[in-house]
Design a protein around this nucleic acid. Structure first.
Lengths: 242, 242
DNA sequence: TTTGAATTCCGAACAGTGTTCTAGCACGAA
DNA sequence: TTCGTGCTAGAACACTGTTCGGAATTCAAA
């Protein structure tokens, strides 16, 4: 596991091909592997994602990938950074920092949702690739521009990552309930949940039954915005106090 | 995958042994399988967790487990519910509801940390086992007793689950950086992270460098309490307004 | 008591996995 | 030409989740 992560000499990061080799018309590169791997992951899901499957897509054998990415785990690290790199973080506008932070979170959520199963991959990983670093830099810039003290800025940045990740993770869970091909997401499953909760024995679950209807209409959007409000409002208040 | 979940007639949940069978001196039961499986999981981690490994621990073959738990996925569902069942939720004391909710979250965090890799397992799963239902009932009871309106109670309950899960997930990540046997957790890894961030090129990462020290002393405890404060304060405010 | 069905157990096999080993190819430099 | 380095891959290893079919055990009815 995870030899790549250890091998990477910190900043340069890329293994530059130097002199010749048994070339193919379309030689393998780290980049081409990562981007096809991400494509495979999005199409087949994490369960269907294997080194052989990725290799097949590149018309080669699984063994060839190992020279470039070290291990499956290393490849997943790279995929992670690639996905982080998709997110654009705006330049700081100090008087709008609260809305900007919310936008950062919204972008993060939609990016995660665009790449199914990416949340699973992010789990044991501390993202430290070049894109992750740039991302950190720009988000911290917004917080500091808004007057959030350094320590609180770091704490809340880390918190924001966890919290949005956690939210989207659960969301992905509800959606995964319906199998791959089907589309009718979220609503139907949630309704069944509500019905089920409503049918519980009344003596043991009085509260659950009374609020079952609210479990039924799982207003994810509203819940996410509630989270952002709680987070940013509280943060702004604490930033002022300091 | 996941036949068990579909097969389970909702409430009864348990497959009761009825008439005879090829018994062993210590017959397999769903309970015994789940509890040894949880033990194996805690000891070996999710990567080392396999049906064969669990079966071995029970002096049997992997195939035998399938009659009781349907699939590996089904077994993981059961493990999930078992872990939820470990958590005690106090009876509502309306005037202390905010502190009670924080305690619920703290208990949740420590339970997750006691069972390594449980967070990974929770990911695509909507917990609906008997213990999960009881848990929901009692937490919702506290919120309603505190005067939180029904809809907001449900939203914030779901949010609380996601958010604590997410927080602990990241935490687990940092700890997993150091390999199984070693103990020196958290602090050392975080220090290296801080050093690394401090050594970045100054022109591209001005903010990151200036706050690198705060990344270094990863005050998880403080960050978790910050999260709880943000969450409960904001919730209380919104509950009052309504 | 014998029979028959229901239930529980499990060895063997299948298709698939991540990874390593090894041999080989192709090119630039000596 | 020869050499070494960078790169490509086939084959094999140990492992995975799961299914199959049969064997063992028990209880209810005959």
């Amino acid at each position: 596991m995870d030899e790549t992560r250890r091998e990477l000499p910190p900043p340069p990061f890329q293994r530059v091909p130097e002199r010749g080799g048994r070339r193919r018309r379309d030689p393998l590169t780290r980049e081409s592997i990562v981007s096809t791997a991400l494509r495979v992951l999005d199409r087949e899901g994490l369960a269907g994602f294997s080194m052989r499957r990725v290799a097949e897509e590149l018309d080669t054998g699984a063994a060839s990938l190992y020279w470039h990415v070290g291990s499956k785990d290393g490849l997943l690290d790279l995929i992670m950074d690639e996905v982080i790199g998709e997110q654009q973080v705006p330049d700081p506008e100090p008087e709008r920092w609260q809305e900007q932070i919310k936008d950062v979170a919204r972008t993060m959520r939609s990016t995660i949702r665009r790449h199914r199963d990416i949340v699973e991959i992010s789990i044991g990983r501390v993202p430290m690739g070049p894109n992750a670093l740039r991302y950190t830099e720009r988000v911290v810039a917004i917080l500091r521009a808004g007057g959030v003290p350094d320590r609180l800025a770091v704490q809340s940045y880390l918190l924001l990552l966890s919290v949005v990740n956690g939210f989207t993770m659960d969301e992905a869970g509800y959606e995964a309930e319906t199998e791959a091909g089907e589309v009718p997401p979220l609503e139907e499953g949630a309704e069944m949940v509500g019905d089920y909760l409503g049918s519980l024995p009344a003596d043991e679950f009085p509260h659950t039954i009374e609020v079952a209807a609210h479990f039924a209409d799982a207003d994810q959007e509203g819940r996410f915005e509630l989270l952002l409000d709680l987070f940013v409002d509280g943060l702004a208040k604490r930033a002022e106090e300091a």
